[in-house]
Simulated assay, not measured.
Amino acid sequence: MKRLAGLSAAVLLVVLLAGLGAAQGVADLVERARPAVAIVVARTGSGLSQGSGFVYDARGFLLTAAHVVEGAGEVAVRLPNRRPMLAVVAQTSRSIDVAALRVGEEGLPFIPLAAGRPRDVIGFDDLTVTRGIVSRVLVDQGLLQFDASVNLGNSGGPVLNGRGEAVGIVVGGIRGAAGINFAVLSEAARDVARLALQAPFAPTTPPVVPVQPTPGPSPVPTPAATPAPGEWRLIGSKGPTPRNTEIRTPVNLAIREARYRVEGGVLYVQIELYERPTGDAQIRVFWRLPGSQSPAWVLLYHLASRRFVFGRYAFDEGRRVFRVDPVAVSGIGVSITGSLIDVSVPVAALQPDSPDWEIQVATAYLTPDNLYRGVDWLPWTRIRL
């Protein structure tokens, strides 16, 4: 912690000019946001990694770039006019390069998250102001490109709109190409921020950092008890294998991890891929009763049309393919943010005779012969509703 206090870092604020009619408006916006912008220092096996971050929830939660804290054994943050604080990595996504941190103090000044498509920006590098514009908003990749000055140590800083809300997190630029810098849109980082809110602050234990996956599916034990409402449980995870990283398909549909939770009579399933899905892809979720050889229910989400179908599973013996007999159910939802797919299904839709079910998630893509070919999947896993 003493080493952190002696470090100097350029903390970056990128502020949208749209809606700010005068220089005084920009100055006021910066003055309001500055107390929530932090220096982030991570101690790794190879030394210190340094970047920026910002508080997005007053209860002690910050966002930064994932590469700043990757592999860290200790993380510390320092807000203006405050003592350095130990932090834990509460949630991370390497695919979009965003991590959420938690510190042990509450009542912190914060910058709320917002979605937006920015235009002009100003970059604040310590006390130096640089002006620039947003060159592109890459919605499919969850990124915005801008040309405001970004220097070493700026990764993780916020991009603000005229209301003082964060619409992006700076993640870096192209080496050797001046004025080509990128930020992850806050909308793409929203799930990382939301999941982190459930993480406890435990600085006496090693911080939660991304675990290097092992080849093949990881076995998941059968839940011994009904999960607490809102508690996320692991469905399964997969590391890089020839099947899910080297298979040559028009789209990348390799599954990194899947989890579920039950709250308010709704089953929430979250699937994280290695990259954002594109093209004519299909996301699949199957349910069956323990001991059954065939699924009872299936949900198919078609990425190209952004439509889904939910219903009973049926197998066509003649064509050797399965089909879905649709069932009209209200309250089902599917959304994609970056590489995260969120599915919500009312528990009542499964017509459960038992609290114990098995679930499988999978991905597929449309082949030239107009059939969907499976790309990646996790093994069947028992869950409790």
Rank of each mutant, 00 (worst) to 15 (best):
N252E: 11
A148S: 09
P206V: 03
G25A: 13
V15I: 10
I247K: 15
P219H: 02
Q360R: 15
S292Y: 14
P379M: 06
A362G: 02
R284F: 00
F61Y: 11
A328R: 15
G123H: 05
F286V: 02
D316Q: 08
D325R: 15
G45P: 08
W357K: 11
G236T: 05
G173E: 07
E272I: 02
N81Y: 12
Q360C: 07
I96Y: 07
L63Q: 08
I133D: 11
N252L: 13
G179K: 10
T226G: 01
A27I: 13
R131Y: 07
L20G: 00
R319L: 15
D125H: 12
R78V: 15
P219T: 04
V208W: 14
A114C: 09
I96C: 02
V150G: 04
V211A: 12
T130R: 12
G47S: 03
S237Y: 12
L350Y: 01
L138I: 15
Q360H: 08
A65K: 14
R384D: 02
G318S: 15
G25P: 00
A76S: 14
R43E: 11
L366H: 00
G51D: 02
L253P: 00
V134F: 04
G216T: 01
L299E: 00
M1K: 15
G333N: 15
E358V: 06
L86T: 13
D191P: 11
R32L: 05
F201K: 02
E358L: 08
A225P: 07
L340F: 15
T245Q: 13
D140A: 09
L4M: 14
A27Y: 03
T214G: 09
G331H: 09
P379H: 00
V77S: 06
Q50T: 07
G73A: 11
R248W: 14
A228W: 09
Q360K: 12
G179I: 09
A258I: 02
V334E: 01
D57V: 07
G107W: 03
T64I: 06
G53Y: 10
G153E: 04
R59T: 00
I383N: 03
I341P: 04
A76V: 13
R323F: 04
A76W: 12
G71S: 03
S354T: 12
D97V: 12
I133P: 01
L144A: 07
G157H: 12
V171S: 11
L29G: 06
R82P: 03
F308L: 06
N370D: 10
V15A: 14
L371W: 15
R312C: 08
P240G: 03
Y260E: 01
N252T: 13
V171G: 02
S95G: 02
L366I: 05
L138V: 10
S330A: 14
P158M: 04
A254E: 10
A199F: 00
L289S: 15
K238L: 14
V329A: 05
V88E: 12
A328C: 04
L86N: 11
P158Y: 06
P229G: 05
R307K: 10
A202G: 00
N161P: 03
P368S: 02
V26M: 04
T381L: 03
L152S: 13
E74W: 05
D356G: 07
Y260M: 03
V121H: 08
